[in-house]
């Protein structure tokens, strides 16, 4: 375990350093990410500036909701985007074979070698917005609550990571799964930008029981914002960490299955 950690650090350091080497490029990347990601926040601000509330949620409540999504997505992205975003391509081209020849768990290997430094700006935006929401909404952040917030972020990150893994793994069988990834990341996650009580019952069930994405932000936010309109059960608001661990477990299991089924395309 210790050796693994050292290995991870070594890879991460090399990665961060290479990405930081091109300083001008890095600055442009940060700038572009800030512009790209703030449009989501700005559009929420504009809409709610005009309409005041959406489904009983006020501006800063919605922003808090969204910031939790962006933050957990970015943390998950740091570790899993590089590894699993390109997995279908690696498998298609046959370069995945190389991974299997390394004397280390392939799962850890693909993650360690592809850590990204590109999400720093997202953390900053998301955390700033979150802090802003806490002050604007007069939410008292006690030590207990802070601890719980950290747990929720970890849980939400695990759910997002499981999403990255589960959408990439089918590539082991069908070789091409980028359509699935698109569907997940540019379409299904956009449900999370607004409170899910504005959608139909079918979508609420989908996002709670089938793809439990609502646990990333909607349910935990109910706790922090003191909302008492519960969609299903009140105790759902405490379930994020557990759902995260479970889902990640399932994702890892599927990855194992996929790995066993892997047949090189040769190259």
């Amino acid at each position: 375990m210790k050796r693994l950690f050292e290995l991870y650090l070594a890879f991460a350091k090399v990665n961060f350093l290479t990405q930081l080497e091109y300083r001008g490029q890095y600055a442009i990347r940060m700038l572009s990410k800030v512009i790209g990601w703030s449009t989501g926040f700005i559009s929420i601000l504009f809409l709610l500036n005009k309409f005041k509330t959406i489904g009983n949620w006020t501006t800063y409540e919605v922003l808090f909701l969204y910031s939790l999504d962006v933050l957990s997505y970015s943390i998950a992205g740091t570790f899993f985007m590089g590894a699993f975003g390109k997995l279908p391509k690696l498998i298609q081209q046959g370069t995945f074979d190389e991974v299997l020849t390394k004397p280390i768990n392939p799962f850890l290997y693909v993650i360690c070698t592809r850590v990204s430094a590109g999400y720093t700006s997202n953390y900053i935006i998301a955390i700033l917005i979150m802090a802003l929401c806490f002050t604007k909404l007069d939410l008292n952040l006690t030590i207990g609550k802070f601890f719980w917030l950290c747990m929720v972020i970890i849980g939400a990150t695990l759910i997002q990571s499981a999403g990255f893994i589960l959408t990439a793994v089918p590539a082991f069988w069908i070789l091409k799964s980028d359509g699935l990834q698109m569907l997940f990341f540019s379409n299904l996650t956009s449900f999370l930008r607004y409170p899910i009580d504005i959608y139909g019952r079918g979508i609420q069930i989908l996002l709670t029981f089938i793809l439990p994405y609502a646990f990333i932000n909607y349910y935990p936010c109910q706790y922090f914002l003191g909302k008492n309109e519960y969609l299903f059960y009140p105790w759902f608001q405490y379930m994020t960490p557990l759902v995260g661990v479970l889902l990640f477990g399932i994702a890892y299991f599927t990855w194992k299955k996929g790995l066993n089924a892997y047949q090189s395309t040769g190259s």
């Binding site: 809409l47 959406i54 489904g55 069908i174 091409k176 980028d178 359509g179 699935l180 698109m182 569907l183 540019s186 379409n187 299904l188 956009s190 449900f191 607004y194 504005i198 959608y199 139909g200 979508i203």
Partner: peptide
């Protein structure tokens, strides 16, 4: 398959937007 996914995905996008407007 990829085409169908894009169809579904875009249908979802429109649906989300309509829900927002309705609300």
């Amino acid at each position: 398959a990829s085409l169908y996914m894009r169809l579904v995905g875009n249908m979802i996008r429109i649906y989300i937007q309509v829900c927002i407007w309705q609300s």
